[in-house]
Amino acid sequence: MSIQHFRVALIPFFAAFCLPVFAHPETLVKVKDAEDQLGARVGYIELDLNSGKILESFRPEERFPMMSTFKVLLCGAVLSRVDAGQEQLGRRIHYSQNDLVEYSPVTEKHLTDGMTVRELCSAAITMSDNTAANLLLTTIGGPKELTAFLHNMGDHVTRLDRWEPELNEAIPNDERDTTMPAAMATTLRKLLTGELLTLASRQQLIDWMEADKVAGPLLRSALPAGWFIADKSGAGERGSRGIIAALGPDGKPSRIVVIYTTGSQATMDERNRQIAEIGASLIKHW
């Protein structure tokens, strides 16, 4: 067993022997301040990774656009098919120029040779490549099948209805392509620590998230040296922004954090800054 596999296998073990965790309302004060600064709703939840206990939450059962955070769930569904012998990570998928959609920095470079399922998941999570996500959605049967996968996990809230990039439209009061912070946090925890996926697939999923290259201005910008984070960000229309993450000190994750916002007129930089400040408060009061 590799060191990384050992780390993920012992996530519940280490967490069980940690000192009790206590909620700190100071972080919620910052979440509410972010709402004021952005002029928009902000949803927040913080779960203990081992027990699933909610440590703090704000608007945990209000719907927010998922945006690209759905790509972690998508690759979880792909990995479940791999575990069941219905898919192979090494299978190569070929596609054409007509398949390319807006923001496809990886797939646009491989029109000639195609990409493997493993490479597509890596591109979808680490670079948020939209064509990679659409190609992977095709392998599982489309958005409705991802929703069905989530329902089978016990998540009857999260739903995907459309493809990239239309799913980022974020129309107010439109339930399409949305989740709730509580539902997303619980589902992410199941994917990373539950028995739904094999140990190898859980490790692969967290490795992809740990290698995320496009979430630097968010929670990662607030992390002290030595902290662990595996995350996936999302951005959408109407001032929408979000991030889902597993993080913790001492090089291992111990909490799940989900943050979503929508309806702001603020710039992307300002949305990023507010999420980073929430992260800084979380870490300060850990």
Rank of each mutant, 00 (worst) to 15 (best):
V101H: 12
S122T: 11
G248I: 04
D155C: 08
D129C: 00
D161S: 00
N50V: 11
F58S: 07
L135E: 07
G242V: 05
G216H: 13
F70C: 00
W286P: 05
R159P: 12
I140P: 03
S104W: 04
K30I: 15
C75W: 00
G263I: 00
T116W: 04
T112S: 06
T131Q: 11
L74A: 01
Q88E: 07
E210A: 14
A276F: 12
H156M: 10
Y95R: 08
D250V: 12
S221F: 08
L74H: 01
H156F: 12
E46R: 04
L218A: 14
L111K: 05
F70Y: 15
T158A: 13
K32L: 06
K71H: 15
S264G: 04
Y103E: 12
S254P: 08
E62A: 12
L74S: 01
N50D: 13
P25W: 05
V106H: 03
D177P: 06
S264V: 02
M115N: 04
R176Y: 03
P60K: 08
E108F: 07
R118T: 08
G248F: 07
A148E: 08
S201V: 03
I125V: 13
F64D: 05
L205C: 08
P165I: 01
F58Q: 05
S104V: 04
N168D: 14
G226W: 01
M153R: 04
G242K: 10
V29L: 13
T131I: 11
G114D: 13
Q86M: 10
T198V: 02
T27S: 10
A40P: 10
M67F: 09
E145K: 13
Q204W: 00
W163Y: 14
L111C: 01
V117T: 07
G154Q: 08
P249E: 01
N272H: 12
L136Q: 08
L111Y: 07
T178F: 14
Q203W: 02
G154F: 03
V106A: 07
L120P: 05
P217T: 10
S122W: 11
S254V: 06
L247K: 12
W286C: 03
A148Y: 03
R238N: 14
I278G: 11
R241W: 15
R273N: 11
P60I: 05
S128A: 15
V117K: 03
N173D: 12
K190M: 13
S96Y: 06
I140M: 10
E166P: 05
L73D: 04
A211S: 07
P253Q: 10
Q97T: 02
T126P: 07
E175Q: 11
M184D: 10
E195W: 00
E210Q: 09
D231K: 13
R59C: 04
E62W: 14
G142Q: 01
K30M: 15
A235S: 00
I278K: 05
I275V: 10
Q88D: 08
I243E: 12
P25M: 03
A200T: 05
R220C: 11
V78Q: 01
L223M: 15
A40K: 03
R63Q: 08
G154N: 04
T107C: 01
K109M: 07
E62V: 07
N134R: 01
M115Y: 06
G234Q: 08
S254C: 06
K144R: 03
E61P: 01
S281W: 09
P60E: 04
G76L: 06
N50Q: 11
K30A: 15
I171E: 01
L167I: 02
I140S: 03
E166H: 04
A170M: 00
H156A: 09
I54T: 09
E270T: 13
I283D: 14
Q265A: 10
T107M: 07
E166K: 04
H94I: 13
A40S: 06
T27P: 08
G194V: 03
N272Y: 04
